[in-house]
């Protein structure tokens, strides 16, 4: 991956596949550390399975013999001098926490979070996301539950709505200048 936001997308897609109806993605900056917490109310994992999940040969997918997402994320956090943990309870949900030292030469740029959030929401109309990014000077926030009142029966994953979400977040990130392309893109 070239951006941390792509890792976040990948790990959060596990929560989508776990059948979660509510997923929160929370970024907390305490320079130089960035802590990422992804919590879901999906199917969860047994203690026994959880132990194997950081091993790159563990997957319940049937199309490929190895699962890569979690081992990859763990390795990237630890390479920066940060940490990784995962907690899970069957039928309750899963929480993944990883911290990254952003001053490390091995740290990836965060990249395009608005595009990651938009992509997550495009995974289906019935799932809710809480996105929070606590930065030193401000807090960026989007809760899809708050959008539903405005949308009525228009699905959350309607392309026009997805673009609104992306541009709303870009604006909060200070990327609303139309002459400026999105920074951090590789």
């Amino acid at each position: 991956m070239r951006q941390l936001s792509e890792n976040i997308l990948d790990i959060t897609m596990n929560s989508v596949r776990a059948g979660a109806s509510l997923i929160s993605v929370i970024l907390t900056e305490d320079p130089p550390m960035l802590t990422i917490t992804i919590a879901d109310n999906g199917c969860g994992m047994t203690a026994e399975f959880l132990e194997k999940v950081v091993d790159p040969f563990c997957t319940t997918r049937t199309t490929r013999k190895v699962g890569l997402g979690i081992p990859f994320f763990k390795m990237e956090a630890e390479q920066t001098g940060g940490s990784f943990s995962i907690e899970s309870t069957p039928n309750v949900g899963t929480t993944v926490t990883a911290s990254f030292d952003q001053s490390s030469i091995d740290a990836l740029p965060l990249g395009d979070m608005p595009e990651t959030v938009m992509t997550l929401i495009s995974s289906g109309p019935d799932r809710d996301f809480l996105f929070l990014h606590a930065r030193p000077q401000e807090e960026i926030r989007l809760d899809t539950r708050e959008l539903r009142g405005q949308l009525g029966d228009l699905p959350l994953d309607t392309p026009e709505v997805l673009l609104w979400v992306r541009d709303y977040l870009r604006e909060q990130y200070g990327e609303n200048d139309p002459d400026r392309s999105v920074p951090n893109q590789s």
């Binding site: 997308l9 990948d10 595009e115 938009m118 495009s122 995974s123 392309p159 026009e160 997805l162 673009l163």
Partner: peptide
């Protein structure tokens, strides 16, 4: 396709492009 293999290869900007084009 939006698994690890797809995302690592650049699936996110592809999805973004299709959403923009469709809208």
């Amino acid at each position: 396709g939006m698994a690890t293999c797809g995302i690592a290869a650049g699936a996110r900007p592809v999805l973004n492009a299709f959403v923009e084009l469709t809208a």
